[in-house]
Design a protein around this nucleic acid. Sequence first.
DNA 1: CGGTATCCGCGTGGATACTG
DNA 2: CAGTATCCACGCGGATACCG
Lengths: 118, 118
Amino acid sequence: MEVSDPLDSSLGEREFAPGCATRVLLDHVTSKWGVLVLVALADGTQRWGELRRRATGISEKMLAQTLKTLQADGLVHREAQPTIPPRVDYSLTEDGREFVELLLPLVTWVADYAKRSG
Amino acid sequence: MEVSDPLDSSLGEREFAPGCATRVLLDHVTSKWGVLVLVALADGTQRWGELRRRATGISEKMLAQTLKTLQADGLVHREAQPTIPPRVDYSLTEDGREFVELLLPLVTWVADYAKRSG
DNA sequence: CGGTATCCGCGTGGATACTG
DNA sequence: CAGTATCCACGCGGATACCG
């Protein structure tokens, strides 16, 4: 291709078919709540209630759904203590930590840009 | 905090209020089609028709809406030639290029991870 | 070619109530 | 505390038609 192309970072093929694994996973991790939950978990292991407070505005339904999806994707680890009252801890898996390392700079940039522009 | 916290990357405050500028912008740039359009534009200036093909599966309505939003956010530049037939070029602004530099590694990682896992 | 306008189905996601 | 279950509205987004 003859366009200048200064940003090609070794991603050979950028045409993703609708419904392909990459697009599906991308939708999960870039979803409205997915981003906020992952960013919250970047601070370390957290409980259900903490996550609800940190992902401000999320409903119980969406928190459950988001966590299940990210868990199935292999990015989030769930550990339940069989105590009463129950205690459940959520944390990032090794893969999740890898991903969040790329996500945090992006979120930081957005927050920064929103401040400069807004 | 006593958790290990190896990922704190100088983002002091991570609790974003619903509807705040950061959350709104984050929703734009992490939206289903926003990501694909930005990634497509990372390859350089492109026309409407090219973008439609690259963001495979997008409708005309969503492409128009996505481009307008990203343009209003200051990440995308639009340049229309007053010719017949009309020709309109879309490209990243300087800010858009900054952002996409952070976005591409993330998308690359997701594509890679989807391949290893899926 | 590069859009805009309109209609409308349906899935996302909020609210509420209930459970182990 | 940490969820599940159910109901339902509303807006996202696709399809279609049309315009400059």
